[in-house]
């Protein structure tokens, strides 16, 4: 059977599009893990193979490629647009095409009316405002009643990592006690930001297992974020929205440093604090 190149073009585009969707869909499906938060089960993708924006980009290129191929020569253009021309001008005066034309002309107004109605109906979506997730820290900040320079501030316990590994281990363990007493309700047993209250909160609690969070930050940044909590954020990060408590009111300075030690110690080995040097 010989297919018209217009029909072929549509088939190839739709076929490749469907194959991509099925392939990506299947890949994400196998990557799905069941997440259990406080008794509520969620399915979520454990590995994002390709972000949706890249998927759309591929689909766009497929479409452009198909269009280019079927318009590569005069004959091909002619062959491709012939069915369209036949439908619109109907040179052979076929009855079947006439029916199609009338149907289209009667359906189109309804379609436009629907689009118009949809656009005119008032919608009341959630107000959108953009929030900075990792704001630039101030250079000096008053935490625990004394000013700290966040550029030069270092974890006083970090030195033990090399000089006294036994002591370091003990300090990280103590940090763990503090973590499981105060933090794990939101940040989770596995430090993955999936604690039992995490679903209630927006912004969601930080996932320390993620290489995009604490692995990108200096310990001083963490000290600032823990010490002053959500209300200590600059305005562009919405200090009114984060539920992070102001821990300097509850913990001591030493406890905060120990928790920071624990966060880096308990997460995968590639997650280490960044330094300015």
């Amino acid at each position: 059977m010989k297919l018209n190149s217009f029909v072929k073009g549509i088939l190839v585009t739709v076929g490749l599009y469907a194959a991509l969707i099925v392939l990506f869909g299947a890949v994400t499906l196998f990557g799905m893990v069941e997440v259990n938060i406080n008794g509520i089960l969620f399915e979520e993708s454990s590995s994002n193979i390709l972000p949706s924006s890249i998927q759309y980009m591929y689909i766009f290129f497929i479409f452009v490629g198909v269009v280019l191929y079927y318009t590569s020569s005069a004959e091909k253009i002619e062959e491709t647009i012939r069915p369209m021309a036949n439908f619109v001008f109907n040179p052979e005066k076929k009855a079947s095409i006439k029916v199609g034309q009338y149907t289209m002309y009667s359906v189109l107004p309804f379609f436009f009316a629907f689009v118009g109605y949809n656009q005119m109906t008032p919608k009341f979506p959630e107000p959108i405002a953009l929030r900075v997730i990792h704001p630039a820290p101030p250079t000096t900040i008053k935490i625990f009643g004394e000013p700290h320079n966040l550029v030069s501030l270092e974890n006083p316990y970090r030195q033990y990592e090399k000089s006294d590994p036994e002591e370091f281990k003990q300090l990280a363990l103590e940090g763990g006690f503090i973590y499981f007493k105060n933090c794990f309700f939101c940040h989770g047993d596995f430090l993955d930001g999936r604690g039992m209250t995490s679903l209630n909160l927006n912004p969601v609690p930080a996932n320390f297992q993620d290489v995009g969070t604490i692995a990108m930050l200096q310990e001083a940044f963490l000290f600032w974020r823990i010490g002053t909590g959500g209300p200590g954020l600059p305005d562009e990060s919405w200090p009114w929205q984060s539920a992070m408590p102001i821990w300097q009111n509850i913990l001591t300075q030493q406890e905060v440093w120990k928790v920071i030690l624990f966060l880096y110690d308990y997460t995968p080995p590639q997650i280490t604090p960044r330094t300015f040097s």
Partner: peptide
């Protein structure tokens, strides 16, 4: 329905809440 989060308060495990 909104989810309720226990406030971090000194000296009390936040798990000990009945209204969620």
């Amino acid at each position: 329905t909104f989810g309720l989060t226990p406030q971090a308060a000194p000296g009390r495990p936040p798990l000990n809440t009945l209204i969620d």
